[in-house]
């Protein structure tokens, strides 16, 4: 079933140097899957994620032929309707938990608050459910963490708390923007495992925005590769090593490898055509 359909999405920013066309004719369909959007900085991958939830700054111009979420036409939604969708039906996990959690509220209060916004429950029930949720994201001592402030917990723990908050309303889609790139390698895997377990259990579709090709190769089902605001290739994650677009291949080859060390790493020569040429499979 198609959860989200995006057709010819275009995003333009107003900057000091004039208009910047950050996303160009991006089209994709999200099913019940883990879809990755990968690209280098400035490729427009985060802008796509934000445009779906209308989170770009007000001066941004977003146009699309279609932005269909289930039965809802996101393009026709007013501000109030969009707010009802944010969090409840489509939620977002940002890169750094340090900046997405409220620094002057305990972790537990924030989760409880998220619960009581979305469900009509008492404070005590909210607290119990929050503790339950902390247990779900593999936090060993939920009672203790409940009463801690964000600066007192580690990055990995913070990101688990974020996941707990985002999963609570049982949304249909989670958009995760580089959720593990601020974390150490040994906790990255734990966080990804927790995310996988929860989205599978609750039947949530995932849009996973990342710059890390090796990570999405293992973690996701399908990959959209973005370059210069366009999707240059759409490919099954486990076929990334056999990608056909020169940009995707270039990215894969430029990574240093432990097993096959090369004295000099291949350096990509960018082709002007990648910005305009239609890619066909």
């Amino acid at each position: 079933m198609d959860v989200l359909t995006v057709e010819k999405l275009n995003v333009t920013f107003r900057t000091d140097e004039g208009l910047k066309h950050a996303v160009r004719d991006v089209s994709f369909t999200l099913r019940n899957e883990k879809l990755a959007i990968v690209g280098e900085s400035g490729s427009g991958k985060s802008t796509v994620g934000k445009a779906i939830l209308r989170l770009n700054p007000p001066s941004t111009r977003v146009t699309a032929e279609k932005l269909q979420f289930g039965k809802t036409n996101l393009l026709a939604c007013n501000e109030k309707e969009i707010r009802a969708i944010r969090g409840q039906h489509i939620s977002m996990i940002m890169q750094d938990p340090k900046f997405s959690l409220n620094p002057v509220m305990t972790v537990g209060e924030q989760i409880s608050e998220a619960l009581s916004v979305h469900r009509n429950i008492s404070r005590r029930e909210a607290k119990e459910a929050a503790l339950e949720m902390l247990k779900e994201v593999s936090i060993a001592d939920p009672e203790h963490v409940y009463s801690q402030y964000p600066h007192e917990i580690s990055g990995g723990m913070g990101q688990r708390v974020m996941i707990a908050m985002m999963v609570i309303p049982e949304p249909d889609i989670i958009i995760a923007d580089e959720p593990t790139s601020a974390l150490d390698v040994s906790v990255q895997q734990d966080v990804l495992n927790i995310l996988t377990r929860l989205i599978e259990k609750k039947n949530i579709s995932l849009i996973f925005i990342s710059h890390d090709l090796n990570l999405v190769k293992k973690f996701c089902d399908r990959v959209l590769v973005m370059y210069g605001g366009r999707v240059v290739e759409s490919i099954k994650a486990n076929e990334l090593s056999n990608a056909s677009h020169p940009y995707t291949r270039g990215l894969m080859e430029s990574l240093p490898s432990l097993k096959h060390r090369r004295e000099t790493l291949p350096v990509m020569t960018r082709d002007q055509n990648w910005l305009t040429q239609e890619y066909t499979t």
């Binding site: 990215l251 990574l255 004295e263 790493l265 291949p266 350096v267």
Partner: peptide, 14 residues
């Protein structure tokens, strides 16, 4: 740095 730029800088350092 992005991975494609990382490759350039690593080559330069080598």
């Amino acid at each position: 740095l992005d991975v494609s730029v990382q490759a350039e800088i690593l080559n330069l350092l080598t």
